[in-house]
């Protein structure tokens, strides 16, 4: 592989890996995140608007 090939590969892989890690970090550390205790809730959505 040529030097140009190494640069392109490392840049491309580095960009997507950094973006992925940053997103997952943000998702996991954002305080609004809350685990619900069950899979679904009894809720009719139209009640939210009335």
């Amino acid at each position: 592989m040529t030097l140009g090939g190494w640069i392109i590969m490392l840049f491309s892989v580095g960009c997507v890996t950094t973006l992925f890690c940053w997103c997952i970090y943000k998702v996991l550390t954002t305080p609004e995140e809350e685990e619900k205790m069950h899979g679904f809730e009894i809720e009719t959505p139209d009640t939210e608007h009335k």
Partner: peptide, 27 residues
């Protein structure tokens, strides 16, 4: 839900796909 974050979630899901594609599949 109404206040769930779609901007970050969309970006995160997209980036996970890109990581699998470029970072893993590409090598």
């Amino acid at each position: 839900k109404r206040k769930d974050d779609v901007v970050l979630s969309g970006l995160a899901a997209t980036s996970a796909n890109e990581f699998c594609e470029v970072g893993l599949g590409g090598l």
